[in-house]
């Protein structure tokens, strides 16, 4: 069962939804719509709830946060809804947001941000293997991506860049920019935001480089980048900085769009961090 607004008439959600039975065209009712989807989850249907722009999660939030995510702790029941929360960039103050941090903050959710076909499958399995409400933080930038985007580990790396969602494409570019300037760089992908597990894949590169940078397309303050940087820092004892959006509105036009960190900005942030350590690069 899939519920959402304007599914069939508007391009089948960027062609990510097949013309299949059990598609429910919701009226434009963003609060009740989420409640209806959570009700379907309660009834055991494992519904997919499509949110065309992540900013609308603020409206959908009440049934998701206050009902679905609290159900287990309160009543030992579950409402396993799969929320396809789609992010975009450059289309104004309430259509360009990345809000997965909000759902990391509240208890009761699983949160992941897949960018590759394989990761989407992995994330779906993660949802089906559990009974928690699931926030799948999608990004339109992932829909055209067919590549695997593996971690990049450089021998004797100077810094480890942890990248989330759309910034993964930019982090790879930043690593190339840095390499040209003599800075060796690990790029480690973060797909699973909550629970966030400090596996060896994640911590080992930082123990080598001894300095890290977490990049996220959402707001930096109290966001995924700060939260994960903190976990990494406490766990390894090495300094890790967060890089997300500046603390201002994403306006419609440039230069006021406050876009997700792009390669140049990531590289600059990395160099600033390294300058603080006094290391010299040639």
């Amino acid at each position: 069962m899939l519920l959402g607004e304007s599914i069939s008439a508007v391009g089948w959600v960027n062609n990510t939804v097949p013309d299949a039975p059990n598609i429910v065209e919701l009226p434009m009712t963003d609060v009740a719509g989420a409640g209806i989807a959570v009700g379907a989850a309660l009834a055991g249907r494992r519904p997919i709830f499509v949110v065309r722009f992540q900013d609308f999660l603020i409206l959908n939030g009440s049934p998701l946060i206050f009902y679905a995510a609290k159900l287990k702790d309160l009543h030992e029941k579950s409402a396993p809804i799969f929320v396809r929360a789609i992010a975009a960039e450059g289309i104004g103050p309430v259509h360009s947001g990345v809000l997965h941090s909000l759902f990391m903050h509240f208890p009761g959710f699983r949160v992941a941000s897949p960018m590759t076909p394989g990761e989407y499958e992995e994330v779906w399995r993660g949802y089906m293997d559990n009974d928690d409400p699931f926030i799948c933080s999608e990004h339109r930038a992932s829909y055209s991506n067919k590549d695997d985007l593996p971690d990049e580990i450089a021998a004797g790396a100077d810094i480890t860049i942890y990248a989330i969602s759309s910034t993964r494409f930019e982090a790879k570019k930043a690593a190339r920019l840095l390499k040209n300037e003599g800075v060796r760089c690990n790029v480690v992908n973060i797909v699973w935001l909550k629970p966030f597990t400090l596996t060896k894949r994640i911590t080992e590169p930082l123990k080598e480089s001894r300095i890290g940078l977490v990049v996220d397309p959402g707001h930096e303050i109290a966001g995924a980048s700060e939260s994960i940087a903190y976990s990494l820092m406490i766990n390894t004892g090495f300094p890790v900085k967060a890089l997300g959006l500046e603390d201002r509105t994403k306006c419609l036009c440039q230069p006021l769009q406050n876009r997700a960190p792009e390669a140049g900005r990531i590289a600059e942030a990395a160099k600033e961090l390294l300058a603080g350590t006094g290391r010299v690069f040639t």
């Binding site: 434009m28 409206l59 104004g92 309430v94 259509h95 419609l252």
Partner: peptide
Amino acid sequence: GGRAGSNCVQCHENGVAMHGHHGLIG
């Protein structure tokens, strides 16, 4: 100031009091 665009137009001059929308329908 060019920050908001087509769907967020406001007017507070010439006797008009029109508040800007932000893009969330309704």
